[in-house]
Design a protein around this nucleic acid. Sequence first.
DNA 1: CACCAGGCAAGTA
DNA 2: TACTTGCATGGT
Length: 216
Amino acid sequence: MGRAETLMDMYDAMLGALGPSHWWPGETPLEIAVGAVLTQNTNWKNVSQAIDNLKRAGLLDVKGLLALPVPELEEFIRPAGYFRLKAGRLRNLLAFIDREVDGDIGLLGDRDFSGLREALLGVKGIGPETADAILCYALDYPVFVVDAYTARMFQRHGLVPNEADYHELQAFVMDVLPRDVALFNEYHALIVRVGKDWCKKQKGLCETCPLQPFLS
DNA sequence: CACCAGGCAAGTA
DNA sequence: TACTTGCATGGT
């Protein structure tokens, strides 16, 4: 059985067990991009509170957020943790959006993929996962987002070497599956959902995991 | 109590 | 280049 078939069988198993994910949680490209920064190494539940704070204050707006004094921004996003760090990272991203497309993040979707990805990676605080999450979930580029769960899952199933880096994990999927934004969107979402419920860092409840049949 | 959560950058040797 | 550490809150 080839890699593409295996990956699609795993996808079907997860989708069949859990149903569609409807990711990313977030109503606008900007909300998704902000969430992508805030969720770095952080539980989504905490991020959700931070985003609610910004929403209720009517601040989910590039220029509005940039005009906000940093200490106030920090208070709004405090529940998401690393709030000083993330206030800076958010401002770096917002300044980028303001500079490139005058604050209209949707316009980034017209850009050449590779150039835009490189530009995002040039923003301090935006690494490969955050860049790809923004590209896939906010801007609809067909890119597969890799995260800690992805590495853990593929490693535990013996599909990739334990030392595989971000790009290798991403290529493992993208080299063999059709470049379909809906597919990559759902695939990453399913991996996170399965990871959260069955594949914690230390404990794994493999007996009831939808991917249990795929364990060698 | 320990450990984890949808990372990333800076520091050290 | 290859590790290590700081960043911070909230939940299990």
